[in-house]
Design a protein around this nucleic acid. Structure first.
Length: 411
RNA sequence: GGAGGGGUGGCAGAGCGGUCGAAUGCGGCGGUCUCGAAAACCGUUAUCCGUCGCAAGGCGGAUCGAGGGUUCAAAUCCCUCCCCCUCCGCCA
């Protein structure tokens, strides 16, 4: 939710910034609805004040009350309607993009910041399906398209990857969390997933619960409605969770393999900071992710998403993209966003600044995901169908080598 | 799933038709005392919206889990929903 008071005071700046996210019209509608609402407030307040009586009223007062209440009823109904309109529109207006975010609406407009590491030179790169042990066919039989089993050494590789990220971030002071992944609509509204990205969220049939597409949702909800001591900030969390996405609108894209599936696992960073600290924190979260990827030896690049390609909540998003030899290109494997006060406003997460209460800033960012394990398989293939697993993961229980011959560890 | 109890300010906890935005304690803030601090004592301290003001603040309204209802009047009575606790059942 944007700061409506600030928006009223400086509508041109807000409109210009929101236009870059394609939301100038939504913003104008919001301002108009806000104006309608504000015109009604003083009238309702005045009528309500006239209904307030102390002690037992006299017959004359009761007579007068009748008239006032009749009028009040009508004006209150108008006010309630105006408020509904305003609130509905307010939920649809996205966060303002930061000034240094490039224009554009698609991933082609992303600005590349740097490339780190060299893509491996492979004569005939195999793709992850051939290198690791996955079972897409049986998963399809059971769950449908875009599901897969991770089996044996390949599964152990993924588990070591999660542990690698969790351990490293815990050592940095991030508090480890295993969150609920079934959440209420409020949590999704609060993070900005609803109403703009509703079609990508699974809903449970018998209960009013939804499957979270990322641990960001329950992590943002962790402190919902709370007032946090200034001294306690920043709060940093790292969570492991499965993630569920309907991938509506992705029909036909990445239909092969495990690149884009309905269910995957992710280790997510989440931070709550003072407003003045969030841009430094954003860089810090990105640095954490880069360090994890770099220390595995994976070649990657960092891009800044254009305004029109970011989520509603985000003011600025970095993507870390890892090289996929089978595709000959970099693919998104991490997304790190500063949502500034957008989520904190919706969720009511505030800190006390002197006397006033102000919304905190929230940030989220991928530490590692399943997709990185696919990148490991592909980048460290040895040409004979086997894979040399990076040392840091072997130290955490991943097999030293994967493939080449039947799995020796696990089933 | 069944039975009962409960959701009140930063926290704990009273209030159970009007004098209640709400006792009291803790915590916070300011002060007295002190070389300084602790203790003690005094004062102060909810949030949101609108509006006026450069500001401090003033004025009006709303808010006692959420939504509806009864009433001239609701934290208090009624209904629905959500959540928490206790016991029973089931269960990793």
């Amino acid at each position: 939710m944007i700061d409506l008071k600030a928006a009223r005071a400086d509508p041109d700046r807000y409109r210009a910034a929101l236009a870059r996210k394609g939301a100038a019209e939504a913003f104008d509608e919001l301002l108009a609805a806000d104006e309608r609402w504000r015109a009604l407030v003083p009238r309702v307040d005045e009528l309500r004040a006239r209904t307030k009586l102390r002690g037992k009223p006299s017959p004359e007062q009761l007579e007068e009350l009748r008239g006032v209440k009749e009028e009040l009823q009508q004006v209150e109904a108008s006010l309630a309607g105006a408020e509904r309109d305003r609130d509905r529109l307010a939920l649809r207006v996205p966060n303002l993009p930061a000034d240094d975010v490039p224009d554009g609406a698609t991933e082609d407009d992303a600005r590349e910041l740097r490339r780190v590491g060299e893509p491996p030179e492979l004569a005939d790169p195999k793709e992850h399906l051939e290198l690791g042990r996955f079972d897409m066919d049986r998963a399809a039989r059971m769950s449908g398209a875009r599901f897969g089993y991770w089996i044996g050494d390949t599964a152990r590789l993924a588990l070591a990857l999660y542990r690698y990220a969790l351990d490293r971030l815990a050592a940095q002071g991030f508090v480890t969390v295993l969150p609920p992944v079934l959440v209420r609509a409020e949590a999704l509204v609060g993070t900005g997933a609803f109403p703009t990205d509703e079609q990508n969220v699974y809903e449970l049939a018998g209960d009013d619960l939804f499957l979270a597409g990322t641990a960001e949702i329950p992590l943002a909800g962790l402190h919902a409605g709370e007032i946090i001591d200034r001294d306690e900030l920043p709060l940093r969390y790292v969570a492991f969770s499965p993630c569920f996405r309907r991938e509506a609108g992705a029909a036909g894209r990445d239909t092969r393999g495990m690149i884009r599936v309905h269910q995957f696992n992710k280790v997510e960073q989440f931070a709550l900071t003072l407003p003045e600290a969030s841009w430094d924190e954003h860089e810090r979260l990105l640095a954490n992710t880069e360090e994890l990827v770099r220390d595995l030896g994976l070649p990657y690049r960092v891009v800044v998403l254009p305004a029109g390609d970011m989520s509603a909540a985000s003011a600025k998003t970095y993507d870390v993209e890892i090289w996929f030899p089978s595709q000959g290109r970099y693919r998104e494997t991490a997304s790190i966003s500063n949502t500034t006060d957008f989520q904190a406003r919706r969720l009511g997460i505030r800190y006390r600044d002197g006397k006033a209460l102000e919304p905190v800033h929230t940030l989220n960012g991928t530490a590692v995901v399943d997709r990185m394990a696919l990148a490991i398989l592909e980048n460290f293939q040895d040409g004979d169908g086997s894979v040399t697993v990076p040392g840091p993961l072997v130290a955490l229980g991943a097999p030293r080598r994967i493939g080449g011959e039947p799995a020796s560890t696990g089933d």
